[in-house]
């Protein structure tokens, strides 16, 4: 068993760690509140925008409507946008996203390029020798749409100029404080569920389909909304991920504080025993010495 002095040092360092993790937990708790407010506020708009995009994609002859709606016959390159945090100490938050991405895309038949949002994801992808097309880190907390619109533009441009033929978004969906799950969303080209496909098929075969009237003009309006609503999905995913990151960090730091307390308690107990043993030994020595003297 270690000496009493060594144990005292260890208790002190464990208590220090507990203090730091508790502080981090408190900070995350206040950040998570803001992030959750931000994500829930924009969620309805983003969901509706996505619905409108899907409706547009359901239109007959979608390929001729807008270049971003064209489903290319042959997919030669895939782009994956991976959203992680800039910092660690958030439990399995960052590694979950990367693990999910590599499970999903490592066996991809065509080359995969990555765009990393967040420093941790960048480092992890880099270490796995993935091809990075772009990297965005140090995003502000609760970013505005304009802070991140460059990311959306990069993605849309890469798709438009044929550099990539499909775009996926891998991010963490914020479900509640205790549950966040890594998810993937196909961003471009817009994908319809099978159910919609059947409808589309029937529309084609049951006379005229209910196509939109466009005002002012089909190309003007689609040019305006498709890139913007696509970028909006990236924005929403970033907000979801940020809320998840703070929640994950809060939970992880809470657990760390609890563990440190348990550990400090266990060490304290061991230290007390060592100290008591030492005193008992000292007394035994003294008594033994005194007896030896009086026996003479």
């Amino acid at each position: 068993m270690a000496s009493a002095r060594e144990m005292k040092l260890r208790i002190k360092s464990v208590k220090n760690i507990a203090q730091v993790t508790r502080a981090l937990e408190t900070v995350s708790a206040s950040k998570v509140r803001k992030a959750v407010n931000a994500v829930t506020a924009t969620r309805s708009y983003a969901t509706k925008a996505w619905q409108v995009l899907k409706h547009v994609a359901e239109q007959p002859g979608r390929d001729s409507l807008h270049p971003l709606l064209v489903e290319r016959k042959k997919v030669r390159n895939t782009l994956v946008v991976v959203i992680t945090g800039d910092r660690g100490l958030a439990g399995a938050y960052n590694s979950n996203v990367i693990r999910y991405a590599s499970q999903r895309f490592d066996k991809n038949t065509v080359p995969v390029k990555y765009v990393a949002i967040g420093r941790k994801g960048r480092d992890l992808l880099y270490r796995r020798r993935k091809e990075l097309l772009g990297e965005f880190s140090n995003l502000p907390a609760a970013p505005s749409f304009f802070d991140v619109s460059a990311i959306g533009r990069l993605v849309v441009d890469a798709y438009k100029n044929g550099e990539v033929d499909e775009v996926f978004l891998v991010y963490t969906n914020f479900i509640n404080m205790a549950r966040q799950t890594a998810t993937v969303k196909k961003l471009l080209p817009l994908e319809l569920t099978d159910e919609n496909r059947v409808q589309d098929f029937e529309q084609h075969h049951n006379g005229p389909a209910a196509a939109y009237d466009y005002e002012p003009d089909q190309s003007i309006i689609l040019d305006e909304i498709i890139p913007r609503f696509t970028a909006l999905q990236v924005y929403q995913a970033i907000l979801e991920s940020q809320a998840s990151e703070h929640a994950a960090r809060m939970v992880a730091m809470h657990a760390a504080t609890d563990n440190a307390k348990d550990l400090a308690g266990a060490y304290q107990l061991a230290y007390n025993k060592v100290r008591q043993q030492g005193i008992t030994n000292d007394i035994l020595d003294i008594v033994g010495g005194a007896e030896a003297l009086s026996a003479k």
């Binding site: 409706h55 209910a210 009237d213 466009y214 005002e215 309006i221 305006e224």
Partner: peptide, 19 residues
């Protein structure tokens, strides 16, 4: 207030997408 002027929408209106 649509791009081409005011539009009144009643139930069963034809699909429209407007700025």
């Amino acid at each position: 207030p649509g791009a081409g002027g005011e539009m009144g929408i009643l139930p069963k209106h034809a699909p429209v997408l407007t700025t």
